[in-house]
Design a binder for these strands. Structure first.
Lengths: 123, 123
DNA sequence: TCGATATTCAACCCAAAGGTTGAATGATGC
DNA sequence: GCATCATTCAACCTTTGGGTTGAATATCGA
């Protein structure tokens, strides 16, 4: 029973060049499906599927106007993704990594000075 | 012939909760494979595969020390991803979207005032 | 009413992702 | 040397992803 969360869907949707290109196009404004599909070397159906993936991730919103479907970019889900990444980055750069590096460095120095063997008595 | 670029691999690697958890753990410091795998309800082999995906995306670096492999977090690829997202966001918020909205608004107003039918003579 | 246009639905294909189990490799410690 | 531990390799299975083609649906324009 896989229950993918928002991040899963967002990042998965973004992990495809076609879909990123679609988003890029949409960032310039609302576009119809056919118009959107035109530059790609694949069937309209294929693009339609990509759009559904983007919709599932809520990165794209669809507005029906007669027979044409107008798609627009919704940046909100990307905020969450960006925030996750930033959290990782900061979590890494700050104290924890520094501390870890320091401890390792101490270990290395200690085991290099005490016994003549470079393979220290770690762990 | 699919030639996935960096972003593909990075985002694909991040689009899995197990792998994100692994990165989160690694952000707290270098860790052995077995130790890393322990909290997960899956085989060691499965985790090993996840690690390979993260390595392929260069989000994780492996350092062999005797029989144990020490893994560490490498944030660089995430920078590129974050930059792409930021570019999208800004590309969307600025002028282009504003212009598009403006034009649409004008269209809507024009078609709402001239004919009594709300369905305007658009396009 | 009718033909063209915009889009999806449905069925299928193939490759890749994520998982399993079992065996292989390689360092470690007596 | 030998059992043990850390890790990967190899083969397999099932689900999903990305693509195709062909038919269905719905709106438009005349």
């Amino acid at each position: 029973m896989r229950t993918p969360n928002h991040l899963d869907e967002t990042l998965l949707a973004l992990a495809d060049p076609t879909r990123r290109a679609i988003l890029q196009r949409l960032a310039a404004g609302e576009t119809r499906v056919t118009e959107l599909a035109q530059p790609f070397a694949m069937s309209l159906n294929a693009v339609s599927k990509h759009i559904r993936v983007l919709e599932r991730a809520k990165l794209v919103h669809r507005r029906r106007e007669g027979r044409e479907h107008l798609l627009s970019f919704t940046p909100k889900p990307m905020d969450e993704a960006a925030r996750w990444m930033e959290a990782q980055r900061s979590n890494w750069t700050t104290r924890l990594q520094a501390l870890d590096d320091l401890l390792q460095e101490e270990d290395r120095v200690a085991s290099a000075s005490a016994p003549p063997h470079p393979k220290g008595p770690t762990r």
